[in-house]
């Protein structure tokens, strides 16, 4: 049991959802929440090991100029922490080995797959086997989507969740696997956590706009084998209060937004299981 749950939200170079992500961490009960600029990590002023919950928020890392989060992934892979000789990437690897939690949303999810943090078959967290690419529509879109949750997934973030309703806001959210074997394994080993669905959250749909990007098998979010590393295109931090819901003026909704459940699960898990 930890006394204090400590969350870090990494920002800089084009991220833009850090404030609401930190807010969601706080509402979910995280005791300490720091928004940390990546330069603070690179200058050794902050270290990942001092936290339990790593949040990679949405945005446009380096403008997504060579593809979503490509340059951002390149930075984490190759940048060195000042005066230590250590690559920032090594801190990420240690963080994972310590069994801590990582949540990547939208651009943060793109960053994770391009780093190879997801799906990370056989515990290999540095080899890319899936990607997130341009929506079939060829355009960025902001719209709310229904999601069905794979109950068999080991994902700790979605425990006890049925369907969820969240906004997507991206131009590059279509998940593509390197080959059929990878796709099959995603299914078989229950890496698939979330899929775009119809309005009753009854199961995966391929038709636009319910599936907003043409993602293969309607995949919206995946986790690693441990279920502690999770990335998704929809924005759970954008639905922390009922007034975030697009129809809150016409529907009876609980005070707390559905997206917050994902953060609560994370914080509760840390409190319960991380020593």
């Amino acid at each position: 049991m930890v006394k204090k749950v400590k969350s870090i939200v990494i920002t800089g170079n084009g991220t833009n959802c850090e404030v609401e992500m930190a807010h969601a961490c706080r509402l979910a009960g995280s005791d300490d929440v720091d928004i940390v600029h990546i330069s603070q990590l690179l200058f050794g002023e902050k270290r990942l090991e001092d936290y339990h919950f790593l949040n990679l928020p949405g945005g446009f890392l380096d403008g997504d100029d060579m593809g979503g989060a490509k340059a951002g992934a390149n930075r984490i892979l190759h940048a060195t922490v000042k005066n230590s000789g250590e690559k920032l990437h090594e801190q990420f690897m240690r963080f994972i080995n310590d069994g801590k939690l990582i949540l990547g949303v939208c651009n943060g999810f793109q960053l994770m797959v391009k780093l190879g943090l997801l799906p990370a078959f056989d515990g290999e967290y540095d080899s890319q086997s899936v990607t997130l690419t341009f929506n079939d529509s060829g355009r960025f879109e902001d719209r709310w989507v229904y999601l069905t949750i794979n109950k068999k997934s080991p994902c700790v973030f979605t425990r006890d969740l049925g369907g969820v309703y969240l906004p997507v806001r991206h131009g590059e959210g279509k998940l593509v696997a390197r080959n059929d074997a990878v796709l099959k394994r995603l299914h078989v080993r229950n890496h698939i956590v979330m899929q775009y669905s119809d309005h009753a959250c009854r199961g995966p749909v391929m038709n636009y706009p319910e599936n907003p990007n043409g993602s293969i098998d309607a995949i919206a979010g995946i986790c690693d084998e441990s279920g502690r590393i999770f990335g998704l295109m929809p924005h759970p931090e954008a639905y922390f209060h009922y007034t975030n819901h697009p129809r809150w003026t016409r529907e009876e909704l609980p005070e707390e937004g559905m997206g917050l459940r994902i953060f609560r699960n994370a914080v509760d898990f840390i409190r319960r299981e991380i020593a």
Binding site: N16, C17, V19, E20, H23, G58, R139, F140, E141, D142, R143, W144, P167, R169, H235, E237, A238, F240, T243, N244, P246, R247, T249, R250
Partner: peptide, 22 residues
């Protein structure tokens, strides 16, 4: 409207598109 992010920063209350099917 859809091609503009109208919700980032988390404070969206009345969005540009509203109603039973948004």
């Amino acid at each position: 409207v859809r091609q503009y992010d109208h919700e980032v920063q988390g404070g969206s209350i009345i969005k540009p598109l509203v109603g039973v099917v948004n």
